[in-house]
C-alpha cells in the first residue's frame, strides 16, 4: 500500500521566534528552517511501516515556497521514495493545504495519509482533520501507536484524560503525537542518494483548487513580557512566600 506524508518547512524549533518590527509577522530571514518536528515523526512512521513490509511506497508532499524542496530532500534522505512540491506565491492556510492534499490523494490513491498533529509555526492543528472531512475518511488524530491489519488501522490516541483507541477503515488519516516514535537521522550516503530520487514540482493552480486565504492577519505582536522575580535563599524563605500567597498555612 501507498502512504502519503505531508511535510511542512517551518522555523527550527530551537530558534527563538522574533516578531518583525513592522508587526506583520515573524522574521524568517536568515534563520534556520527545518521540517516540522511532528512531520519527521510522520515520515519515520511511514518508513517503519515500509520496513515491516506493510507499506510499499512513501510519497512526501510539501506546499510552500520553492525552498520547501530542502524539506522534501530531508524526507527522501530519511527513506521516503518520491516527493511532490506544490509551490504557491501566497501563504496557503490549512483549508487550502487540505484541498490540495485532497486533489493529490485523488491522483495517488494512498491507503494512509500520515500528517503531523500541528505545525509549530502557526499552531493550527487542523489540516489532518480537514483532509479527513474532504475525503470522508476516518481520522486518528494525536497518535501514539498505529497498527495496520488488513483493511483497517488501529490508532491509539493521546487524549486529555489518557489514551483512547479507535479502529479506522482504510483509507484513513492519521496525525502524529510526540510519543509515536523517535525519528531517525538521515545518514550521509542516504543524503547523497536522496538527490537522485524523483521530485515533481507543481503549482497550486495546476490542481484547479482555490487556495486564496480566508483569514487576514491584521497584526502580529509580542506577548506581554514576564519579568524575572526574586530568588529566595532557602526553603524557609520559600515557605514564607507560599504563606504570603495564601497557598500554605
Amino acid at each position: 500500500m501507498k502512504v502519503l506524508v505531508p511535510v511542512k518547512r517551518v522555523l527550527d524549533y530551537n530558534v527563538k521566534p522574533r516578531v518583525k518590527a513592522d508587526g506583520t509577522g515573524i522574521d524568517l530571514a536568515n534563520v534556520k528552517m527545518s521540517m516540522n518536528p511532528f512531520d519527521e515523526i510522520a515520515v519515520e512512521e511511514a518508513i517503519r511501516l515500509k520496513e515491516k513490509g506493510v507499506v510499499t511506497e512513501i510519497v512526501v508532499v510539501s506546499i510552500g515556497e520553492p525552498k520547501a524542496q530542502d524539506t522534501l530532500r530531508t524526507a527522501l534522505a530519511m527513506g521516503a521514495d518520491r516527493a511532490i512540491l506544490v509551490t504557491s506565491d501566497t501563504k496557503v492556510e490549512p483549508l487550502g493545504v487540505a484541498k490540495l492534499l485532497k486533489a493529490i490523494a485523488d491522483e495517488e490513491q494512498p491507503s494512509l495519509v500520515i500528517l503531523g498533529k500541528q505545525a509549530i509555526d502557526d499552531d493550527n492543528n487542523q489540516t489532518g482533520q480537514m483532509l479527513a472531512a474532504l475525503t470522508g475518511w476516518g481520522q486518528g488524530t494525536f497518535a501514539s501507536k498505529i497498527e495496520v491489519e488488513g483493511d483497517f488501522v488501529t490508532v491509539t490516541r493521546e487524549v486529555d484524560g489518557g489514551a483512547e483507541t479507535e479502529k479506522l477503515k482504510l483509507p484513513a488519516i492519521v496525525t502524529t503525537d510526540l510519543r509515536l516514535n523517535e525519528p531517525r537521522y538521515a545518514s550521509l550516503p542516504n543524503i547523497m542518494k536522496a538527490k537522485s530520487k524523483p521530485l515533481a514540482t507543481k503549482t497550486a493552480a495546476d490542481f484547479g483548487v482555490d487556495v486564496s486565504p480566508r483569514l487576514t492577519t491584521l497584526k502580529v505582536e509580542e506577548p506581554a513580557k514576564r519579568s524575572a522575580g526574586v530568588k529566595v535563599a532557602d526553603v524557609d524563605e520559600l515557605v514564607g512566600k507560599l504563606k504570603a500567597l495564601g497557598v500554605a498555612k
Binding site: 490549512p94 483549508l95 492543528n125 489540516t127 474532504l134 490516541r157 480566508r214
Partner: peptide, 20 residues
C-alpha cells in the same frame, strides 16, 4: 483534544477556515 478533533472537520465541511 476532543474539540480539536471535531472542529476542523466541521470547518472543512462548511468550507471555512478555522480560527484556532
Amino acid at each position: 483534544t476532543n474539540g480539536k478533533n471535531i472542529a476542523p472537520r466541521v470547518a472543512a465541511l462548511l468550507d471555512v477556515m478555522q480560527i484556532s
